Computed example of a mutant assay.
Amino acid sequence: MRKSSGRGGMMKVSEITKDNISNEIVDRLLFEGLEYDGRAADIIIVLGSRTACNYRVPLAAELFHKGKAPRLIFCGGKVQMTMLGEMAEYKAMLMAAEKCGIPRERIYAETRSQTTAENLMFAREIIEREYPQCGSVIIVTTAYHMRRAQKLGEKILRQEIITCPAGRGSTQRGNWYKTEKGRMTALDECLKFGYYIRNGLIDDFEI
């Protein structure tokens, strides 16, 4: 991964390779313009992961308690070793939500998904069935995963998407380039976009 000191020209995300990626491209693609802007929405969607109950759910609870959305969808059917034991992601998230004071009746559980795209595909089914008047969603996921979630949400949900990245770990905007782990995680995330674009899951775009 090469370094760059200037913004340079725009490029299509599909054109990114291991050979032409730079720190500047990583920053633009994964982090630029994705900070939560404080807007309210109809639903908060929390994407699943092994550690979602650690930090994504508490952030979603903070949004809920501030009145930013009246309902939530917890996504994730993959069985993983979470801090609460080995279980499906959504189950750990529900347990964490109880500790955070979110009433169970305000949460829809998406129990089947194994990937980010499936998180949002199955969340859309819940919205269409349970809350068809929904017009906007806040997506909560980890910071470096936020752009991919945003673009998938635009394609799959067809709702107004409000991004709310959860800052944690070695791959945040302010530290990803400081460790080998952070750099490798960021590079891997950037290169995943090519797969998603080639398979029609997201539309190509310029950065």
Rank of each mutant, 00 (worst) to 15 (best):
T179K: 04
K151A: 12
T179F: 06
G167Y: 15
V137K: 00
A97C: 05
I162H: 01
I102V: 09
T116F: 12
T111Y: 06
D203F: 09
N199Q: 07
R147P: 01
R158W: 09
E180W: 13
I207G: 02
R106S: 13
Y195R: 13
A123E: 00
Q133E: 14
F205W: 07
N119V: 12
F122C: 01
Q133A: 15
L157A: 03
E206T: 10
G85Q: 09
T171G: 10
F122I: 09
A117E: 14
A92N: 03
G169L: 11
N199V: 00
Q159Y: 13
I126Y: 00
A97Q: 01
A149F: 13
G101Q: 03
A96E: 03
I107R: 00
V140R: 01
I162M: 05
E128F: 12
V137F: 03
R129W: 12
L187G: 05
I127D: 00
C100F: 08
Y144I: 11
G167C: 15
G174K: 13
M184N: 14
V137P: 00
G194D: 08
Y108F: 15
I138D: 00
T115F: 11
K99D: 11
M87C: 07
F205T: 00
Q114E: 14
H145A: 10
A149M: 11
T115G: 11
S113T: 07
A166C: 14
L157M: 07
A96S: 12
E125H: 10
Y131H: 12
M87W: 08
R147S: 04
M93F: 04
M121N: 08
G194M: 06
D204N: 07
A109C: 12
P103A: 09
M121Q: 13
I138W: 02
I207F: 14
N119F: 12
I127G: 00
E86H: 07
G174I: 15
Q114R: 15
I162F: 05
S136R: 05
I156Q: 01
R183L: 13
A149N: 04
P165K: 07
T185E: 15
F122R: 02
E154C: 06
H145F: 14
T116N: 09
I156R: 01
M95G: 00
T141C: 15
N175C: 11
Q172C: 15
E125I: 15
Q114S: 14
P103T: 04
E128K: 09
R104T: 02
W176H: 02
Q172T: 14
E154K: 05
R158S: 09
T185R: 13
L187N: 06
K151C: 12
I138M: 04
A186G: 06
E125T: 14
L152Q: 04
A166P: 02
K181H: 13
Q150G: 08
G182K: 02
G200E: 04
C164P: 02
A97F: 03
T141Q: 11
G153S: 06
Y131C: 14
I127F: 02
N119P: 03
Y108W: 13
Y177P: 00
G135I: 08
K192A: 10
L191V: 07
D204A: 05
E154F: 10
D203A: 11
E89D: 05
D188M: 14
K192I: 06
A143T: 09
A186I: 05
L191G: 08
C164Q: 01
P165Q: 08
N199A: 04
S170V: 15
A149P: 01
I162E: 00
M184G: 07
